[in-house]
Computed example of a mutant assay.
Amino acid sequence: MSQQLVLDRNVEDAKQFARILYIAHALTFFFSVGTLSILVLIVNYVKRPDTHGTIVYSHHTWMIRSFWWYLVWMVAGGVLWVTLIGIPIAMVIWALAWLWMAYRIIRGFLDLNSNKPMPV
């Protein structure tokens, strides 16, 4: 088997695994408001070095950044919620964070299927 064929197969395997991670992020995000996404995040961190130099690397980075920014906005909403005066603002922040995360998951999945790297 040629070296190029092995590399192509490794990239395809990495892409398939990234697809599974996008689906896992989506499921944990939609059914647990992202709390279980920490498990998928750990897998992203573990698998990302294996994909260095491929478009899949940018997708792992995209998922990792999406998680951390989502967490920042959820915590910001939580801080506002505690102040009681900020409850309506917290609700808006949480809704916008949820929509933003849904967009990031969908866009990443579609771009991966189109063989496009994510902006980093």
Rank of each mutant, 00 (worst) to 15 (best):
M74S: 06
S37E: 09
I87F: 03
L5Q: 14
H60S: 04
A26F: 12
M74A: 06
T28N: 10
S2Q: 07
V6L: 11
W94I: 10
A18W: 05
W73N: 12
I85M: 13
Y22S: 01
R9I: 14
K116A: 08
T61Q: 11
R65L: 05
A76F: 07
V92H: 10
W100D: 10
T51Q: 09
I106R: 04
P49V: 01
D8T: 10
I85Q: 12
H52M: 10
I38K: 14
M118I: 01
V72H: 07
L110N: 08
W94C: 00
Q4S: 15
R48D: 09
Y45W: 13
H25M: 09
V120Y: 13
H25D: 06
K47L: 10
L99W: 04
S66P: 00
T35D: 08
V79A: 11
F29I: 01
W73E: 07
V40D: 01
W94P: 08
S37A: 14
V72N: 11
T83M: 10
V40C: 05
L80W: 01
H25Q: 06
V6D: 08
T35Q: 04
A97I: 04
D111C: 12
Q16L: 15
E12N: 06
Q16A: 15
L36E: 06
Y45A: 14
T28M: 11
A18Q: 09
S58F: 05
W98G: 07
L96C: 06
Y70G: 06
G34S: 04
Q3S: 15
